[in-house]
Design a protein around this nucleic acid. Structure first.
Lengths: 334, 334
DNA sequence: GGGTGGGATTGAAATGTTTCAACTATCCTG
DNA sequence: CAGGATAGTTGAAACATTTCAATCCCACCC
């Protein structure tokens, strides 16, 4: 800026005015300054601006699993909202590892981001409580914590579980597997809880809703669950599976097809999230849709409100999931 | 830092020493300062550090399509390398839109990142030339530009096209479709070029390698290509398709299966990239593998070399793609 | 007791912006 | 023509850190 000022024959303050309050400087000077900037290839130094401002013009989203398209879609939603507010978005990926998450948060704190959106590995981890108590605006995405003291955005997972299993009962299934784990993930617990609730309401025997636990919510784990499922004695073998997310469902689907099972006739499958690959699977996957972009946009809205509005009150936004029925549960069982 | 210094009864300089050269300060003072930092919840201000240092401790990757898992894997590779060098990585997504890419680059320039890795929308866009001429280290990932003046990292796409089509010829196919577009994407052109080269070398008639153009490299476009393919008169209809990437291949696969075609018997399919979903498809997809993480790691290595080593010379790293044969091309045609 | 060496600490400058009170020049009004 | 309003411009302070030359203090040696 000093060089620009010299080149244009004006003071530093004027250059700053051109940048920040163009209206107050005369057209002629403005033009001269702008030409000087172009000639010198001037680029504003963001760190100096930040230092002066005390905060960076950025939000951050720390996502749980970059390999899961679901989170990518959430990030898209956040990004559109951030763009509207003229903020940058830093996207970080904890890959499900607590220490990586902590490292990212640490860095973001040092960057003085305006707010943090996070889908945490563990919603009750102490480093999250630190954040809140530091007064940094933050919003939990797709998770709740017992603690409170912050906003959160998620769908009603219990309801999602109910919808999925009710759909299967509707289709005539009387023995159903719930595929998902580990139980440390709140989502998994709640989806299972919803599943069990409808199951009981329809008067089905408890032991006919079989829980096949997995170690993670990945395609690989879905395949391995498929193997275990195939290994069950045929009179105990479920005719349908409700998977805690679409990656599991895709893995299970793949195993089923390779093993020569017909989907949905031999095995019906319901996933969760409704990622784009679900519709694109060779047997298009019935899934419980979450409003992914909407989730992201709302989260961004909340964090911005917390950052700018002194009268902000924390809010737990809950969205309603919806069943998207496709071929993988297509036929009614006799 | 001022507060910390006051609390610990030392000068600013000493606090800085504790942070940056702990060895020079006596154990007792260090301990006192560290306690003060903990008590006050001190967090280093990154913008001030940057302002002083003149550059941020970060790299950036601007990817072309966040919805394509391929780029996510590349980003993972970059991130591991960045972590080793103790740098942050900013991941941005241009979503294939030039103006968004330009906006991201502009921001990154303002942030004074140490280097930029980019899979550009158009490798010859003027704003990329600007970068190079500004002296900012940057590396093109998965793309080449005619211009030179920078490093790049990619696989040999012509060879990839050769491998794919040779595999199909091997399997007995005599009429093959190439699915991909738009031609503005260098990758697409080169993969097609490789395909045509082997096709000619094996003495096949040119008109039996049919180009089905697409508007983008997405699952949806793959499906629509499937419709066009099914619409061909049966004596012109190919028995196999080589798709410019896996998303197209998955879309095509889905359409084929829904339309009642058997894969690979009625239609064999080869994709490109070997993303995780390829193996997980209901008919596991034969694909040309790119070393995705390796690509990212190498790109990061190159940009760091350019940033730190004054004797740096630009390098065009080329990797060799490999065929991963799976069920979608499983049987030899009579 | 004076001098030396070295470890520990300090103070000041520098980094590139933004902001705001103060200043100048110009024009208008009575 | 004095006085005041207005538009445009300026200068200095502040932001939080790092660096480095300078200083201080102490132990040790002759």
């Amino acid at each position: 800026m000093k060089d620009v000022a010299a080149a244009a024959g004006v003071s530093l303050g004027t250059v700053s005015n051109v940048l920040n309050r163009p209206a107050v400087v005369s057209a002629a000077t403005r033009e001269r300054v702008e030409r000087a900037m172009a000639e010198l290839g001037f680029v504003r130094n963001e760190s100096a601006r930040q230092l002066r401002a005390g905060t960076s013009r950025a939000l951050a989203y720390v996502m749980l699993d970059g390999g899961n398209p679901f989170f990518h879609d959430v990030a898209e939603g956040i990004e559109t909202a951030a763009e509207d507010a003229d903020l940058s978005l830093f996207v970080c990926n904890s890959s499900g590892r607590t220490e990586r998450e902590a490292k990212h948060l640490d860095r973001l704190l040092q960057q003085r981001v305006q707010g943090i959106l996070i889908t945490p590995v563990d919603p009750d981890a102490p480093h999250l409580a630190d954040l809140a108590q530091r007064g940094l605006p933050f919003v939990m995405v797709d998770r709740f914590s017992r603690a409170g003291g912050h906003c959160s955005v998620a769908v009603d997972d219990v309801l999602g579980g109910r919808i999925a299993v009710e759909h299967l009962i509707d289709r005539g299934h009387r023995r159903v597997a719930f595929v998902g784990g580990p139980a440390s993930i709140g989502q998994v617990r709640e989806r299972l809880q919803g599943a069990r609730a409808v199951w009981a309401e329809f008067g089905m025997p408890e032991e006919d809703l079989i829980h096949l636990p997995t170690e993670a919510l990945t395609v690989n784990e879905g395949r391995s669950a498929g193997e275990r499922l195939a290994g069950l004695p045929s009179r105990r073998r479920p005719t349908a599976a409700f998977c805690a997310n679409d990656l599991l469902a895709l893995g299970l689907l793949q195993h089923a097809v390779t093993a020569g099972l017909r989907v949905p006739d031999d095995l019906a499958i319901v996933g969760f999230d409704d990622i784009d690959f679900a519709a694109a699977a060779a047997v298009p996957l019935t899934s419980v849709r979450q409003p992914r972009q909407e989730l992201g946009r709302t989260a961004a809205r909340l964090v911005l409100d917390e950052a700018t509005n002194p009268g902000h009150v924390h809010e737990q936004a809950t969205f309603v999931p919806a069943l998207v029925a496709r071929a993988s549960t297509g036929t009614v069982r006799r």
